[in-house]
């Protein structure tokens, strides 16, 4: 890493710009959780296999547990803590509560982020499109049917 010249990364997270002090090779999830104390984004595998760490980067759901923070330099990132800043975000959160679309809740932030990213790009997805968008995400409690119902509810209310 550039020891001879200062390299810095800055991210806009939930609308606020942050100059990042963590090492450039730090995966984004550790920067969010440890440096910025945004604990809503969860660590599940560190292998981009389970979706618990999803955040929204410029409108798309992105897994944050592998890619180093430097790759996100200058990007606008929305985490679960900022997801309610849009009307779609509020709608998805409300639908998850109304359908009780969680059991232990560990996969929930990643699923909410994925659902918001889906609906921002595809306002009325069919069932197959929704399932495809959520397939990178694991839920071990078996809340899947309720999550699918919640997303359907969020598209119709």
């Amino acid at each position: 890493m550039g020891a001879c010249h200062a390299v810095s990364v800055s991210l806009t997270i939930n609308g606020t710009r942050h100059d990042i002090a963590s090492d450039l090779d730090t995966p984004l999830v550790y920067v969010l959780r440890d440096e910025l104390k945004l604990k809503g984004t969860k660590f599940g595998c560190g292998l981009e296999q389970c979706g618990a760490c999803a955040v929204m980067v410029e409108g798309k759901a992105v897994l944050s547990c592998v890619t180093p923070v430097e790759v996100f330099d200058g990007k606008e990132i929305t985490t679960i803590e900022g997801i309610a800043e849009t009307e779609i975000g509020q709608r998805v959160q409300r639908a998850f509560v109304e359908e009780t679309a969680a059991q232990c809740g560990y996969c929930t932030p990643g699923l909410v982020v994925a659902a918001v990213a889906l609906l921002e790009n595809t306002p009325t997805p069919d069932s197959e499109t929704t399932k495809r968008a959520l397939t990178p995400h694991l839920c071990r409690c078996g809340s899947h049917p309720r999550v699918l119902k919640a997303i359907k509810r969020a598209t119709t209310t």
Partner: peptide
């Protein structure tokens, strides 16, 4: 807890 779960504050 579900309100906190969907907001990431659980």
């Amino acid at each position: 807890g579900i309100d906190d779960m969907v907001q990431g504050s659980f």
